[in-house]
Design a protein around this nucleic acid. Structure first.
Lengths: 196, 196
DNA sequence: TAATATTGTACAACATGGTGTTGGATTAAA
DNA sequence: TTTAATCCAACACCATGTTGTACAATATTA
């Protein structure tokens, strides 16, 4: 690991201190003083690196918006429907591994709605551009279905985090797949008919 | 319409002024001065009615969390599956009619994640308590499916608002029902096979 | 390599603006 | 006229963002 310049180091320290606070409380209650105290700098120093607290938050948010590849790779291999499915999830998995804690905060009850909005928008747009290439009858309608699914999966994931991961991640993935395949209605009906 | 007491009047004016601002910009950029200027009072007056801006936001949020009836009525009639389906949606429809503008802001990109969280939680809990009475095998799993559906519907609704209601509300409702019945996967597949 | 100039980094001090409180003025009600 | 509710001006406090400066790191050149 190459040694950082002092600038990089300080910058990193400030972002890290901000993140520690952001995990615990909403942005509007975080002061510049708190950040610099935690990182061990003068309050003024903050402003040589960032214009305000929002900018730090913005940097964090942008670092969490997924790359096109992460969304497209799995999609492509789904289309081909053969070969190295798992390979194609490499980038996606790495991304989740790396960022799940931050994502959980961002989509959580004290999180950031504009992040969720951007996040969904990015995924929708990448998928839509792919779909246009393939050719499709009702792109408008299709976009709503994508939105439906993304929102649903984010919701499930958030609840799962909130419940402290009460099932293992494979069970969760399986559940997601099951609902997406069968639809909510039939899932519910079958569970209700099949009473305790 | 009965005449309000001065207190009620002022209170209402302040909440209304806050709302006008909240539609336009995030909470953290709204000052007490702005609110009282808009409503035509001294800044100090604000504090005889509210302890801070968060409290006003909280009041607004609480007024938007649906009553149990609104969630249960449609559910019950679904179970019975006969008679006055439309009757049972009366309260729900009235609620949406009355509050759609506010809800749109709250679930929008500059909205309030804690509202969305509370909103979904309330609906989940009401449904779950109903489901427990009926009896069911895997309540844990069932709750995730509810979450999936609520999140999905909120997501679609939000996108629809953002796209300035590009289809009429019946088409939207139909789309929602269709996806919920068939599942996302088969919907997408059929649209892809059925190319332009 | 040593001396010196230059740039980068951190800080203390300041002006400004928002917060929440208090005590008194004004208005309405009893 | 007395009492109580409502509103407001003034105050102390705290966070913000800016500026000028000291100090440290790095580059230049002799």
């Amino acid at each position: 690991m190459s040694k950082m310049s002092q600038t990089e180091e300080t910058r990193k320290n400030l972002i890290e201190a901000f993140w520690e606070l952001y995990k615990e409380k909403p942005l509007m209650k975080i002061t510049v003083k708190e950040i610099t105290d935690k990182a061990g700098y003068n309050r003024g120093t903050f402003y040589t690196y960032f214009s305000d607290v929002y900018q730090i938050q913005d940097i964090l948010k942008k670092s969490l918006i997924p790359e096109k590849d992460m969304i497209l790779d799995p999609l492509m291999s789904l289309e081909k429907s053969g070969g190295e499915i798992f390979e194609s999830f490499e980038k996606t998995n790495a991304y989740i591994q790396e960022n799940s804690e931050k994502i959980a905060v961002m989509i959580g009850p004290e999180g950031d709605p504009s992040f969720v909005h951007e996040f969904k928008k990015e995924i929708r747009e990448v998928i839509m551009s792919y779909v246009y290439e393939i050719g499709i009858k009702e792109p408008g309608k299709f976009e709503y279905i994508i939105e439906y699914e993304i929102s649903a999966l984010i919701g499930i994931f958030q609840l799962w985090m909130e419940k402290n991961e009460d099932m293992d991640e494979y069970a969760l993935a399986e559940l997601m797949e099951e609902v997406s395949n069968s639809g909510v209605t039939s899932m519910m009906e079958s569970m209700l008919n099949d009473k305790a």
